[in-house]
Design a protein around this nucleic acid. Sequence first.
DNA 1: CAGTATCCGGTCTGATACTG
DNA 2: CAGTATCAGACCGGATACTG
Lengths: 152, 152
Amino acid sequence: MVPLSRKSPVPPDRCNLARAVDQIGDRWTLLILRSALYGVRRFDDFQTELGTPRTILSGRLKSLVDSGLLAKRTYKVEGRRARPEYVLTTKGEALRPVLIALNQWGDQWLESEGQPPISFTDSQSRQAVRIAFVTEDGREVSVENMRIVLRR
Amino acid sequence: MVPLSRKSPVPPDRCNLARAVDQIGDRWTLLILRSALYGVRRFDDFQTELGTPRTILSGRLKSLVDSGLLAKRTYKVEGRRARPEYVLTTKGEALRPVLIALNQWGDQWLESEGQPPISFTDSQSRQAVRIAFVTEDGREVSVENMRIVLRR
DNA sequence: CAGTATCCGGTCTGATACTG
DNA sequence: CAGTATCAGACCGGATACTG
């Protein structure tokens, strides 16, 4: 357990965690990203699946495009009318490990009946996959062995 | 890239990621958890550091206690008046990897001047630590090699 | 310190409807 | 489909103040 402290080692206004929270730490934003990571791309698909009020969804999608997490593109299938779609950028795709980690936390700590409905495996070994911290050369590090390094 | 799909493979109401978002996917809640993971425990310390309106902070702390992420305890130092404090439970502590992962995402994707103010290393090898997916026996799996497994 | 009370203006939620 | 418009009620954010 971290000892009691009066203040965090990094003040929120210079903390990239706090800044990340400012950018995506919002219920609808996170749910939209969840759907996007599962391949949902269109306005009405987000709306139907999440039940987001259309006004709010419109605003959130704009913010996500502004902050570079989604790209708004036009999707054209021959013989059909062009449609807008919202696709994850590299920056948005980079959140996948974060959301998978949160999913695993939910699997473990939110009581639910039966097995979790979804899990991840290695396509080669077919073993279950979990999130972990590793050194540069790929050795696993337990949370207890992690040290905070402050720059200043 | 995940292919276009009309719907997520798991509907939000049965998805542990969506349920986790319902529980902690809120700006203040996430910021409070950030501070808590850094050892902050007292009402006014949260309030000063985050600038949360006192009314809101009060409510959020109650929710966090209700959902089992924080425990409200009484902290007694001899010769001083007893004080309430909010300490992370095991369930709350289990969110540490999630928030570290989000911190690392912020380090990489939120432009900021200079080096990130904080980073993590292995206390043994002193190497930098990053988040990764591993199999049960600790071998790293790339995101491209991960397969979704649906139960039902 | 650790809250609760109150007030105000703004945003969100939810519902419904309209348009290209 | 993909939005925008509108409206009512709830909750939030920010400020200030009061209490044990």
